[in-house]
Design a protein around this nucleic acid. Structure first.
Length: 279
DNA sequence: GTGAGGCCTTCAGC
DNA sequence: AGCTGAAGGCCTC
């Protein structure tokens, strides 16, 4: 089915900018999993074409609209963020790149994996996890696996994660799964909570510090004022805005959230994607 | 309160 | 070929 899009949308940068790790491109089609269903998506002019075996067009349209946040008027965000030449240039190069609304649980595990890692390795880790513990799902003859549930990871145990080369992140993932399965932390509650309280809850998970928590808030909970500060963002913000000195990540985060405002997370991701491509 | 060191694994660079 | 250091942080002392 065809879904029309009113404002800018660029599927390539949206799916391959390091916010999500399971999409694969084959010819003009992007294959991925949304809500445990295999879908394929193709970019058209002012529209996308989407296929999925399992659900009717109304559901597929809802699913896709929500995941890609297609109802969002991204021009409004660009206008609010265009405060200086640096950010304007960052946006210009990848206009249409959108922040997804991913499943928070998958997002949490993905970004626990991201610590001292890189996109290639994160993608392999996550895919191996799904191959071993997920359910088989498919779109005609294209087969993938769903993302495992917390109980699947608990059943497998940290040793399997070590075998799958998650390294020191293995215990973090296992313990986090237990905290969710036991009900000690309810992820869904975070949707309703303000930034500071959300952050406090997420950083209670082992392996989740300020940077990872901000990624989960931004990419999983669509809290668009979240601002993850990794080494690259740290360098970019200090050099371009704060005189190039050595500053703590928290200070940079707080400064950027004030400066960029409600859509600081969008600014963050455009800046990050630009740095990554230029290195 | 702030800072260094260690942690799994991979991969590029010598 | 085999070594060394760095890679989207976090935790501990």
């Amino acid at each position: 089915m065809i879904i029309n899009i009113k404002s800018y949308f660029d599927i390539e940068s949206t799916l391959f900018s390091g916010q999500v790790f399971r999409w694969r491109k084959i010819d003009d089609w992007y294959y991925g999993i949304i809500n445990d269903k295999v879908v394929k998506v193709k970019q058209l002019d002012n529209a996308i074409e989407v296929h999925c075996d399992d659900i009717d067009e109304v559901l597929l349209s809802d699913l896709t609209n929500k995941y890609f946040n297609l109802d969002l008027n991204i021009n409004k965000i660009y206008n609010q963020l265009s405060k200086d030449e640096f950010i304007k240039n960052s946006i210009k190069k990848h206009k249409g790149m959108r922040i997804l609304k991913q499943d928070p649980w998958e997002c949490l595990i993905s970004f626990i994996c991201s610590s001292v890692s890189n996109i290639k390795r994160i993608s392999k880790n996550i895919e191996d996890l799904c191959l071993n513990l997920g359910d088989n799902i498919h779109l005609s003859n294209y087969y993938r696996q769903s993302f495992p549930k917390p109980k699947d990871i608990i059943y497998a145990g940290p040793d399997l994660l070590r075998e799958l080369k998650f390294g020191f992140r293995s215990e973090y993932i296992y313990e986090s799964a237990k905290m969710i399965e036991s009900g000690e932390i309810l992820l869904d509650k975070i949707y309703e909570l303000p930034y500071d309280e959300s952050l406090k809850i997420l950083t209670a998970f082992p392996g989740v510090g300020d940077k990872v928590a901000n990624c989960v808030l931004l990419f999983g909970f669509n809290k668009l004022d979240a601002f993850p500060v990794d080494v690259w963002i740290n360098r970019a913000i200090t050099n371009n805005y704060l005189g190039g000195g050595k500053l703590s990540a928290i200070l940079i985060r707080d400064w950027a959230r004030r400066y960029f405002g409600d859509y600081a997370g969008y600014a963050n991701h455009y800046i990050f994607h630009n740095i990554r491509l230029s290195n």
